[in-house]
Design a protein around this nucleic acid. Structure first.
Lengths: 157, 157
DNA sequence: TATTGTTATACTCTATAACTATA
DNA sequence: TATAGTTATAGAGTATAACAATA
């Protein structure tokens, strides 16, 4: 019987008590992070971009010639996992990878012109997605949210 | 040369500019969520508990006899993925699963006495972990953080 | 015809260990 | 001896499609 009341589950999709979970920051952080991630994916669908990849592009854009490992450390990505991620970006023609002049073990990363363009257009879509999803927050609340999140990041090391 | 300055990377592990990324809520949310998740895992290591599993236990504790699918909807977990998660909890002796009296398709979930004990002891460890990790936030800031996160969860549907 | 639970499957993200080449 | 990048591998988490039993 679709649409009928589920007595046992208290209106089902409506309010289900979460118990102690509701008072935990970690739970709400997981849910909110998933909500933003899903909306990000919807907003940027079809462009091949992903949260991690955009993060790498943004750091390279701000630090042309930066080493692959340094990018990983800045973003909390393991060396081993950086390899295939950067491969994707290189294969897509967005990033150029060349042996560093001062350290022949290292790879210096720079954006190609296509990579710069992709970073710009992605950023526009991402800003629009955040503005839409976070339209319920005032500018001050949004600022304070970032401040609180940054302090938690810093505490977790 | 360990410890020597990495000119190209601006002191390396120190301040690396993140570019546009630094102004995005999504980025900081991902990092903060990972920080809490990692600290959660460290705090509860050896007990076999995980964030998702505790979430399920907490919802069952607050709603004895609740259907498996209802738990999943409350927590944003797909029906298909609930199966093996609940299997784990049943195999660990923490959850009892029996055909619902009013709907023979459904499974009613309840905690076993061991499940109730596990939920209690896990909650103590989790509260201690959050109190430690979030000790830099005032009670008011913590409360506002949960409020902001909950509003973002609600916006993402 | 819709819903509950299930199986099978695949992809992303993350983590570890072992290797090479350079430093 | 330490570091940069690589390979291989494994485990979580999550997503979709198809199926049986029941509503």
């Amino acid at each position: 019987m679709p649409g009928e009341k589920d007595v046992q589950a208290e209106l089902d999709t409506d309010i289900i008590a979460l118990g102690a979970l509701d008072g935990l920051v970690g739970y709400h952080m997981r849910r909110a992070s998933a909500a933003i991630g899903n909306d990000f994916a919807r907003a940027i669908a079809g462009t091949g971009m992903r949260q991690v990849l955009f993060g790498i592009l943004s750091v390279i854009a701000a630090n042309p010639g930066i080493n692959q490992g340094t990018v990983g450390r800045a973003l909390g990505i393991q060396r081993a996992n950086m390899v295939s991620l950067v491969n994707e970006l290189v294969d897509a023609g967005l990033v150029q990878r060349q042996t560093a002049v001062d350290d022949r073990r290292a790879l210096a990363l720079t954006l190609t012109p296509e990579g710069e363009e992709k970073t710009r257009t992605s950023l526009e879509l991402i800003r629009a997605h955040e503005d839409r999803l976070l339209s319920g927050l005032s500018a001050g609340e949004r600022e304070q949210l970032i401040d609180l999140l940054a302090r938690i990041e810093a505490a977790g090391d």
